[in-house]
Amino acid sequence: MSGRPAVALGAGTGAATGRVPWQLLVPAAFAVALLVLPLTGLLVRAPWSTLPARLTDPEVGQALRLSLLTATASMVVCLLLGVPLAWLLARASFPGRRVLRAMVTVPLVLPPVVGGVALLAAFGRTGVAGGWLDDTLGLRLPFTTLGVVVAQSFVAMPFLVLAVEGALRSADARYDDLAATFGASRWQTFCRVTLPLAAPGVLSGAVLAWARALGEFGATITFNGSYPGTTRTMPLAIYAARNTDFEAAILLSLVLLVVSVAILALLRERWMAGPVS
């Protein structure tokens, strides 16, 4: 498999570097149009003249603050709970590990609205765990900012777990064994050897989880409803504005677009340059 193409490439460099075949160019052009045109539409229809006045609207700041706060909190939750889970899946061996792995990645393919309904069934007031939480701790998750973090963590966690697990698997486990032979405990090995080796994977997983949490809509609105200041994050604010003030919806979308692209670009440049490019 590796030998033949090399020979073919050597013999016919002209064909490989020649003009781009239309069979690839035309579909690619359509793909670009599909991906870029909608974003161009946002820019064209944006209310540029009233932009400064609208940007200082307290509701915009409120929704943006809430989004940044909850997405960051969700990323922290994912790191604190997801990294240990990823380690368990990658390094520990126990019965049912593959089933567990399949179960924790389900939210990745689940429609978020289904996640919201499931969260209500579990943590709603009449839910399996929700009633107990309310009676014993007086804790009600739906319609609260904490509930938003729970919903975002639910959908974002698998992204982090898969990224970290992949990094742990590709890292050489023999370093762990080596640390053990020098007398390090498993916890020490995790902190000093395993985690530093998997750091790029942890970072890219954290960024993915943050971005997924920032864009979360379906599970959040289903589980928490929508109220300014407590649960109405940017995506929910865009949804609320779209009927009556389409320009406001465009403006909020632009803000979310700029924030997510800026932060992803920044992180990519700082920490992800190696593994990504």
Partner: peptide
């Protein structure tokens, strides 16, 4: 204030 503003009256009823 209410805890949530639902999109339609049937969403409110559902809650």
């Amino acid at each position: 204030p209410p805890v949530t503003e639902e999109d339609s009256v049937r969403d409110t009823l559902g809650k």
